[in-house]
């Protein structure tokens, strides 16, 4: 019996690794970099961008690369251990949820540098990479506030972790900046992959009168776009806004634009500063001042957006970059008071 169990477990493991594979180059790489995600890289968003970043490190910097999808905190520890044992130099743990496991692994493996996207604690070899996506979300909020006809807009989130709450607070502020009387709805689905739940949450907001929806739900976001599409098919006016990556192509006819992080660019810059020996001890902030964060209007629907609103968004972008306009942020990095 034991043997049979082993066989079936081995079969499952083989199948799993088909999904999470990725491998190192055969030539001796310049250095070895790994990516950990807790969701599928096929989300066309947050994780997809990280995966592109990993491939860019391979192509531009000659890194040997590997990716693993880990679902549970126990798997986080295992993955760090495995990469440390394999001699990986740099591990990108792409999400707030890796924080604790990264600190444990960082203490245990001082040779390895761990970059935690949206992380909150700093040591010599555990470095938070903080995307100030709030800046893009704020501009997205201005767009939503200017485009809403009903005066109600909605936000659908996965789990209310600080980086997600940050984007939503900034979105709200953007909405109120152009439309002080607007109503902003907020719902969370409790995970990142339940497309049905995301669609129901979005539909519930649309029925409450919301006509512009933004999401921060990774792979489940497809459900938000579908809900908006169906609403439009019913003859109502409704818009979606993408998040984390340029998602204007997902549902081009109903998408106003996307609050975008250029994750590949941020990863590449981080890897370069590691190569230069400058990484460690301080958190890295990347925002619109370094052109990593932006709001990208959807070129396919530009005709539907009033020119005045586009100008307003453009001038706010310039003011944010110059530091003249402060966007509200949820501070979650240890010891953080002012934006770096």
């Amino acid at each position: 019996m034991d043997r049979r169990v082993t066989v079936s477990a081995a079969l499952a493991t083989t199948l799993l690794c088909g999904a999470c594979g990725g491998g190192a180059d055969t030539d001796e790489p310049a250095f070895r970099a790994a990516l950990l995600t807790s969701g599928p890289v096929s989300d066309a968003g947050w994780y997809a961008g990280a995966y592109e970043g990993l491939l860019m490190m391979r192509d531009s910097l000659g890194a040997g690369v590997s990716h693993q999808q880990t679902r549970t905190p126990a798997e986080f520890d295992e993955a760090f251990l495995a990469y440390a044992a394999d001699g990986y130099d740099l591990v990108f743990a792409h999400g707030f949820e890796y924080q604790d496991a990264a600190l444990r692994a960082g203490r245990q493996f001082p040779e390895m540098t761990i970059v935690v996207s949206g992380g909150g604690r700093v040591t010599e070899n555990v470095v938070p990479l903080v995307f100030t996506l709030e800046e893009g979300s704020y501009l997205a909020g201005m767009m939503a506030g200017g485009m809403t006809v009903s005066g109600t807009v909605g936000m659908v989130g996965g789990v209310a972790i600080p980086p997600v709450q940050g984007t939503f607070r900034a979105f709200e502020a953007g909405v109120f900046a152009v439309n002080p009387d607007a109503r902003v709805l907020e719902a969370y689905i409790g995970n990142w992959d339940d497309v049905s739940a995301a669609k129901e949450a979005a539909s519930a907001q649309l029925r409450q009168g919301a006509d512009v929806l933004i999401h921060n739900t990774d792979a489940a976001s497809f459900g938000v776009f579908q809900a908006v599409r169906e609403r439009v098919a019913e003859g109502e006016v409704a818009w979606a806004i993408g998040m984390n990556r340029d998602q204007n192509g997902i549902a081009p006819e109903v998408t106003l634009g996307s609050a975008v992080i250029d994750i590949p660019r941020a990863f590449l810059a981080t890897a370069r500063s590691w190569q230069a020996g400058e990484l460690g001890g301080v958190p890295i902030y990347v925002g619109s001042s370094r052109s990593v964060i932006d709001f990208v209007p959807n070129p396919a629907v530009l005709d539907a957006i009033p020119a005045g609103l586009l100008e307003e968004v453009d001038s706010a972008r310039v003011r944010i970059r110059r530091g003249e306009l402060e966007v509200p942020r949820v501070h979650f990095v240890e010891g953080e008071t002012e934006e770096g």
Binding site: A12, L16, A19, P40, V41, S42, E52
Partner: peptide, 21 residues
């Protein structure tokens, strides 16, 4: 676990690693 992994692999092979909605 096998079903979740296998469908992920097939989906990525068919619709691209970074996904298509």
């Amino acid at each position: 676990l096998g079903g979740l992994g296998f469908t992920g692999a097939v989906y990525q092979a068919r619709f691209g690693t970074t996904g298509t909605a």
